[in-house]
Design a protein around this nucleic acid. Structure first.
Length: 883
RNA sequence: GGAAGGUUAGCUCAGCUGGGAGAGCGCUCGCUUGACGUGCGAAAGGUCGCAGGUUCGAUCCCUGUACCUUCCACCA
């Protein structure tokens, strides 16, 4: 199959065509295969409601790179995809949609609402998956799962029941974070603390029976005083020792509350007296428990004041705050108002200030499972890349509190708990019980609440493989190998997967966690909807192709670090794609009507060919090592440099001479073609995980008998492809060429003016090496011909000389020589050599260096010194000659 | 109040186990060289935040310090 390639690479059409091909061939599908080692990644399930953003693009690209790499290495690779029901996020969107249709959630009721939610899921659930496909993601779509599908739901139920029977899940009335807008409880992890400018209101609480004596408290939330049930002071605080035990009159309510002593109070802070509102502050709640205080809830679910708030009932919390302050002022009890910056908890979904409230909720007891999760990191069964995230993980787990898992939402897994209508007994079971085990009653109601969305995603690595059934997949693919995710999701998801995996399966759900940073805008800001600074990955793909986007996201980035998005970076990536496209086009054009000559063995090839193969060999080894260590950015930059600098800028140019002389020497041209094609296709394999589309297109064009690069073998280091001597010959030649180009530029010789070049090598061996490769370099040196000679005879004394370590090249430039410029150039060279010689000499004269440094280092310096000295002698001689 | 990361060329960032500072973009000069101007060639540009220490030798290790970013934390 011969194919005419376009002059510039256009990813449009190609990407779609190739993706369909891969899907049709079933390359993405993984099967249980005892003959192969498995390699598994579970995809962090994107929200069904979501749209692909740069964060996904980065995350999925990194996973796809690892998956494609391992697939080529011969592993049975499973990339397990799916979507998350995203409880709150989806519910909010469905409510909004219904609202726009004039439908009220509460009016239609739970069942009807869920119908709408599922319809939404059906409509939009596939959207993000299709977007992922545009990126080239080679996930096993046949195994796509959803956190609320039958299997995952069963896993959720099973885990709930198990944890409950073990006593790790319990129901209790405790203080939780309440979002008054979403009207649900949320977990600690979902509370975002932000500093806000507010006030410190200092208020006098009169002491009962002591006319004119007050206790001054300070608060940032004066309205909560309606629920105060004590004032606390530090037991060691001499200022207040005498009032402990006395009663205070709580202004505006007429209630009397005691002064209590508790260690919690910081004497230094505020007035040293703290109002205690057990129902609306987590610390006060604890204090209240210690002192047996009444808990007075003064808020409704929407954060308006309830009937316990007396005249303030019905007011919004902020309205009430104003009113309370106003009334206190009138009573003369407001001492002062001080501006105060303090941290306020907000709901990460909607930004609403959360209210701590006491509510009956379901919790997961964390102590034991957290310890297990800590152990598994300490023993090394689980590792973070980079490892600095260890501390973050450990710190969170060491300070973890019980996890509030119940949500007052409809979209989610309903809690499998049933209440007996007759006696109130709670039964946790898979099905609604027939008979109450306590009273024999027959009527039950299921708990109205659903579970935190992260409860189900915590099970993702094993629920997707069929757990709790003992499936062959679970046996084979679990535990997974690496989890790839952003650092922003460690608490929500990674930790919960680890302890859930350990608890349910006895194993860490993955061995490594590869952490990446955020993709920020060009100014370093987070991309966000509200700022409108987000870049749509699909836009990038549309304009430059998925390969360019993928390369952009992986180049020059280290694990765990944030990166900035620039369109210029994408352009650079696009340019690279075009570069290799054109290199391939060149090779393809030359393959037409030519015969590729497979060498008998690689050692019989010419030095230039051996050089590039040897370099390729090194790159293969290094890139593979980098990939194994998750150093994707380093790996890809090595491939980039090899392909552009060494292969395109040097090797292709070197090979041209033989291609042009195809008629005269077809065998030589054939070997050049062999090396060109081999080197390129091998390097493309290394590049394939990063740029899957263009590599596939080129690979199949150059090797029509191959089915696909993505199922080809990953290159391995070969002893028979290691040619250090040839590497050194070409390195010498490269120095000569660079020197010549440099000289020509400084002499302002026009590029079209070709000259003769004479090279005098320093010994016979070098001479032979230069002689054998000289012809290939003619073009690169802008030479008519390169004459490799054993001595200077016949070279005009006015020739410009270029000194390298093992040879001198002469350019007879005749009348073009500007002696002044030449002197300048040689003087500069002399200065450089002087510096180098001084450096080497300094090191070698230092007995400490010679005695203590490794021998190899010392010898290397000695070699360098002698080379520099030889070069120096020659440069000085040439300078003298110039007069 | 804890903790982590950053500080390297004009900009954005790499730099593996300490041994002569790199890339991309930008800038300057030259180029219709038979794959590519999304290109080729040549150059300019850095006290590797600051101060100490360890070492024969430090961008890299240690200590301190300044500034920036982020995370965690109940300071009413």
């Amino acid at each position: 199959m011969s194919k005419e390639l376009a002059k510039t690479y256009d990813p449009k059409g190609i990407e779609e065509r190739l993706y369909s091909k891969w899907l049709d061939k079933g390359y993405f599908h993984a099967k249980v295969n005892p003959d192969k080692k498995p390699f598994t990644i579970v995809m962090p399930p994107p929200n069904v409601t979501g749209q692909l953003h740069m964060g996904h693009a980065l995350d999925e690209t990194m996973q796809d790179i690892l998956i494609r790499f391992k697939r080529m290495q011969g592993y049975e690779t499973l990339w397990q995809p799916g979507t998350d029901h995203a409880a709150i996020a989806t519910e909010v969107k469905v409510i909004e949609k219904l609202k726009s249709e004039g439908i009220d959630k509460d009016e239609i009721g739970r069942e009807e609402f869920l119908k709408h939610a599922w319809a939404w899921k059906e409509e939009y659930g596939g959207r993000i998956i299709n977007q992922l496909k545009k990126l080239g993601a080679s996930a096993d779509w046949d195994r796509e799962r959803f956190t609320m599908d039958e299997g995952c739901s069963k896993a959720v139920q099973e885990v709930f029941i198990r944890l409950h029977s073990k006593g790790y899940i319990y129901k209790g009335s405790r203080i939780i974070n309440w979002c008054p807008v979403c009207r649900t409880s949320i977990s600690d992890a979902e509370v975002e603390h932000e500093d806000q400018d507010g006030f410190f209101w200092h208020i006098n609480y009169p002491i009962v029976g002591e006319e004119g004596r007050f206790v001054e408290i300070a608060t940032t939330r004066p309205e909560t005083m309606l629920g105060d049930t004590a004032v606390a002071v530090n037991p060691e605080d001499d200022r207040y020792k005498d009032i402990v035990g006395k009663m205070l009159e709580l202004p505006l309510t007429g209630r009397q509350i005691p002064v209590i002593a508790d260690e919690y109070v910081d004497r230094e802070f505020g007035t040293g007296c703290v109002k205690i509102t057990p129902a609306h502050d987590p610390n006060d709640f604890e204090v209240g428990k210690r002192h047996n205080l009444e808990e007075i809830n003064i808020l409704n679910d929407d954060a308006t004041i309830n009937e316990r708030g007396g005249k303030y009932a019905g007011m919004d919390r902020y309205e009430a705050r104003k009113a309370v302050v106003e009334d206190l002022k009138e009573l003369g009890l407001l001492v002062k108002v001080v501006p105060h910056n303090h941290s306020v908890g907000t709901h990460d979904r909607c930004g609403t200030t959360v209210e701590p409230m006491i509510k009956p909720q379901w919790f997961v007891r964390m102590k034991e499972m957290a310890e297990a999760a800590i152990d598994v990191l300490k023993t090394g069964e689980l590792t973070f890349v980079p490892d600095r995230f260890d501390k973050i993980y450990l710190h969170w787990l060491e300070n973890i509190r019980d996890w509030c898992i119940s949500r007052q939402l409809w979209w989610g897994h309903r809690i499998p708990a049933y209440y007996c209508d007759d006696c109130g007994e709670i039964v946790v079971a898979a099905e609604m019980p027939e008979v109450c085990p306590k009273c024999g009653g027959k009527h039950f109601r299921q708990d109205e609440d659903t579970l935190d969305t992260w409860f189900s995603s915590a099970l993702w690595p094993f629920s997707t493989l069929g757990w709790p059934e003992k499936t062959p997949e679970l046996e084979y693919f679990y535990p997974t190998d690496v989890l790839v995710t952003g650092y922003d999701i460690i608490f929500f998801w990674v930790i919960r997967m680890v302890f859930s995996g350990l608890e349910q399966t006895g194993k860490s759900p993955f061995h490594h966690v590869l952490i990446h940073g955020l993709v920020r805008d060009s100014q370093g800001r987070k991309m966000s909807k509200s700022l409108g600074n987000g870049i749509d990955p699909l836009d990038v793909i549309d304009k430059y192709g998925a390969d360019a986007l993928r390369l952009t996201l992986t180049t020059g980035n280290a694990p765990g670090n944030d990166m900035r998005f620039y369109w210029e970076k994408v352009e650079a990536s696009r340019n690279f794609a075009n570069k290799i496209w054109n290199a391939s086009r060149f090779i393809q054009m030359n393959l037409e009507g030519s015969t590729v000559t497979e060498p008998e063995n690689l050692a019989s090839l010419c030095p230039e060919d051996k050089w590039i193969l040897s370099r390729l060999n090194t790159v293969v080894r290094e890139v593979t090592e980098n990939m194994e260590k998750y150093e994707l950015g380093i790996a890809v930059s090595k491939i980039y440099d090899f392909l552009w600098d060494e292969f395109c800028d040097w090797y292709i140019e070197i090979a041209k001479v033989r291609l042009w002389n195809k008629e005269a020497d077809p065998a030589a041209a054939g070997e050049a073609l062999f090396t060109l094609r081999y080197t390129l296709t091998q390097a493309l394999k290394l590049l394939h995980p990063f740029m899957p589309f263009i590599t596939e297109e080129i690979y199949c064009t150059l090797l029509p008998e191959e089915e696909s690069i993505m199922i080809s073998d990953w290159p391995v280091y070969r002893e028979d492809m290691c040619f250090p001597k040839e590497e050194s010959i070409v390195a010498g030649f490269q120095d000569v060429i660079r020197g010549i180009r440099n000289t020509r530029t400084s002499m302002q010789v026009p590029p079209n003016r070709k000259t003769n070049i004479f090279i005098v090598a320093k010994d016979d061996e070098t001479h032979a090496a230069y002689a054998s490769a000289s012809r290939s370099f003619t073009n690169l040196a802008y030479a008519k011909e390169i004459h490799v000679k054993t001595d200077k005879s016949g070279i005009g004394s006015d020739a410009v000389s270029v000194v390298v370590h093992d040879a001198v090249a002469y350019l007879p430039l005749e009348d073009l020589v500007d002696r002044e410029k030449e002197r300048e150039r040689l003087t500069k060279e002399k200065e450089r050599l002087t510096k180098e010689i001084a450096r080497c000499t300094g090191m070698l004269n230092n007995p400490n260096f010679v005695n203590k440094a490794p021998e190899a280092k010392v010898n290397a310096e000695k070699d360098k010194l002698s080379k520099y000295k030889e070069m120096m002698d020659k440069v000085i001689a040439f300078l003298e000659q110039l007069g």
